[in-house]
Design a protein around this nucleic acid. Structure first.
Lengths: 111, 111
DNA sequence: TCAACAGTTCATGAGTAGTTGAAGGATGGA
DNA sequence: TCCATCCTTCAACTACTCATGAACTGTTGA
């Protein structure tokens, strides 16, 4: 992943609304959710939702797929994985301390 | 890591200058670098550098330590690790596809 | 105590992010 | 063909981010 893409993805995730969207979309897996479904779930205006979804889509973190009148959005797990790998390898230069702290945190949360 | 801290950390990393700072600091390990040293390395104005360093420090990603006239900055590997763990576990709800794509990317870059 | 040095903070201005409501496509049913 | 539905785009506004240079704080050595 190039730095430019990583920066866009980080900026996209650095927002409460969009982080919540990612979580909601991850929970639905590949199938995803329609924009209307998310708007209902979050009680969010259509234009506001559309703004955040397009930010995430332009960052490459989610994908849209049309089905008749509905547009289904789903997370691109490769993009998310690549971003996390970028943080570990490029940004932190594969620093063993960071990796160790990361796996320790992952373990702690698995309980 | 709570969401608020994660959001602050993500926003702090979503900036070209600060990403470069993190890399430079990671490379120096625990010892870190003085603000002047970084300013010289990057050819950056003192106030601009100070602004970005304080953003990273407030996000908890780096730490400052005074030694006589110099202030040494270093990355907090636990914070970076915790952020990455947050992305994997909380944000992506420990989705196995994301983890798999992440480790795949890590492997690909290790070559 | 004074000057020099190392950094931070403040004030200002330009650019960008985010919200809201209205208007504009695209799709499907009557 | 017409209308309802689903979603996006636009315009306007507020609020925040970032860069710059000047002023300020703290530390050291003469």
């Amino acid at each position: 992943m190039e730095q430019g893409k990583a920066l866009t993805a980080l900026a996209a995730l650095a927002n409460e609304t969009r982080l919540a969207l990612i979580r909601a979309l991850i929970a639905r897996g590949d199938k995803g959710v329609s924009a209307g479904g998310i708007a209902a779930e979050f009680g969010m205006s259509a234009s506001r939702l559309s703004f955040h979804l397009s930010t995430l889509e332009q960052a490459g973190l989610i994908r849209a797929r049309r089905e008749s009148r509905h547009i289904f959005y789903s997370v691109d797990p490769r993009a998310m994985g690549a971003l996390i790998a970028y943080l570990l390898n490029d940004c932190c230069m594969a620093d063993p301390k960071v990796s160790a702290c990361c796996t320790a945190s992952v373990m702690a949360q698995e309980r």
